[in-house]
């Protein structure tokens, strides 16, 4: 464990808690893409299959449980909570996210580190996580302006992956044989997807204006 990875995990945790807090307190999911949340629940479900088989550390197990519970409860809130579901704008959240699942799965079948069920599911979860934010970014473009909690959510999500890239660089130089090209490339693609959002988020923060995304 290094400081970059710990900071990354904490940032990731913060992004999920910010979202849960928003939905739970103001009982609204306006501006949140259910599709992205469903993709994230699938990412965690397919990545943490080893939750009960490989014990790595208490921290690892605890964080996996938190991510699983929080991502599925966010999906539950938006889908089934009698008040929150009313604020879900399904006419705007129209990204066909199932078109993301299949290519990621096929790619995981072809490009992986080991052709085993667990490894393929793990690789699938990596590719899926890289594109999971797309429905949310499309929704933000559509709804033009975003409230600051959603902006913070996407910002924290992008920041966590950027911190992970620093973690991979650190581990590459400090641990012999630590090479995971698949993880590195998919993590880089994921961060690049956030890049333009980051640019507009930073501009709005610097000029102290409401975040507006160009259509």
């Amino acid at each position: 464990m290094n400081i970059f990875r710990l900071a990354g995990d904490m940032t990731h945790l913060a992004s999920v808690l910010v979202l849960l807090l928003k939905i739970h307190t103001i009982k609204s999911c306006a501006g949140i893409s259910l599709k992205t949340q469903e993709l994230y629940a699938l990412v965690f479900a397919t990545r943490y299959l080893d939750l009960f088989t490989d014990y790595i550390s208490l921290y690892n197990t605890l964080m996996k449980l938190i991510f699983l519970v929080s991502s599925f409860s966010i999906v539950w809130y938006i889908r089934h909570h009698k008040i929150v579901r009313r604020s879900y704008d399904k006419d705007q959240d129209t990204f066909r996210h199932y078109f993301l699942v299949l290519p990621c799965f096929l790619l995981a079948l072809v490009i992986n580190e080991k052709f085993t069920v667990k490894e393929i599911m793990w690789t699938f979860s990596l590719y899926l996580e890289a594109v999971a934010i797309l429905p949310q970014l499309v929704l933000l473009q559509r709804t033009r302006n975003i409230d600051n909690l959603t902006g913070q959510y996407v910002f924290l999500l992008g920041a966590y992956r950027s911190l992970y890239i620093l973690n991979w660089i650190y581990r590459y130089f400090t641990e012999p044989h630590y090479v995971h090209w698949i993880t590195w490339i998919s993590g880089l693609v994921q961060t690049l997807l956030y890049a333009d959002f980051f640019y507009y988020y930073f501009q709005s923060w610097k000029n102290n204006v409401k975040l507006e995304l160009p259509a």
């Binding site: 080893d50 790595i56 690892n60 793990w122």
Partner: peptide, 10 residues
């Protein structure tokens, strides 16, 4: 032997 590299990251 290539030590079974379990994924230790979240």
């Amino acid at each position: 032997t290539t030590q079974e590299q379990t994924h230790d990251e979240l």
